[in-house]
Amino acid sequence: MVATLEINQVSKTFKNENESVHVLDHLNLTVNNGEFVTIIGPSGCGKSTLLKLIAGLDSDFDGTIMAGNLKVSAPSKDRGFIFQEHRLFPWLNVEKNIAGNLPLKKPDIRKRVDDLISLVKLKGFEKAYPRQLSGGMSQRVAIARALLRNPEVLLLDEPFGALDAFTRTHLQEALLEIWERNKTTMVLVTHDIDESIFLSRKVVVMDAKPGRIKAIVPIDLPYPRTRTSKAFQEFRSVILTQLEHHPAEVEDWSI
């Protein structure tokens, strides 16, 4: 099963009674099997919208999206999703949120849930309810929930936005490890240029109103990457230049 994503001439318009917002405009993008791609762009340019289309959560758009050789028309476990907000079930504790509809009683699932809980550093909080967690902790639970399903494609919408610098670095490294181990295809939205260079093979720079792809910057650096290296700095200025084409929009970065 190939998990290559093909986004072909995708346009999306939100229509309300009195107005319509043209969010994505004839987008084309190919994400190869096992590739790590990040998407960066100003707030409101349609990054989250694009991820939802890829996930199959919204099928009201023009153009086609192929996952492998199947047209995306509905969500699937094969395409995991980490939302911009944690979206935990408030009535389930941490371990049950991670397990979701998988039976925690099964020894192998129990073990994988426990492993993921230590990966996201939440040991001791297995029985805590979401209301007892901080925003960052909740987000880590959501990350563990997505990883448990071992999806072929993982769609991540600013997954580390709510985390402190330490945890963020830890989880970025963990994500790279998982990527290398499982050959998961990753599509990650971020507003952090460093994060995009640190993680991905290919940085997609988007433009707003309507959302278009402005540039695709391949990052041909070997892993693990060091943020202080000269090559890293160079990529940073390349991406920054691409983004700064519209100086007015650089101010309203998404958080």
Binding site: K52, G56, P75, F81, F83, R87, N101
Partner: peptide, 13 residues
């Protein structure tokens, strides 16, 4: 609706 989306992603029957 947001939790409903999660249920779809996790393929709840």
């Amino acid at each position: 609706k947001k939790l409903y989306d999660v249920a779809l992603i996790l393929e709840f029957s």
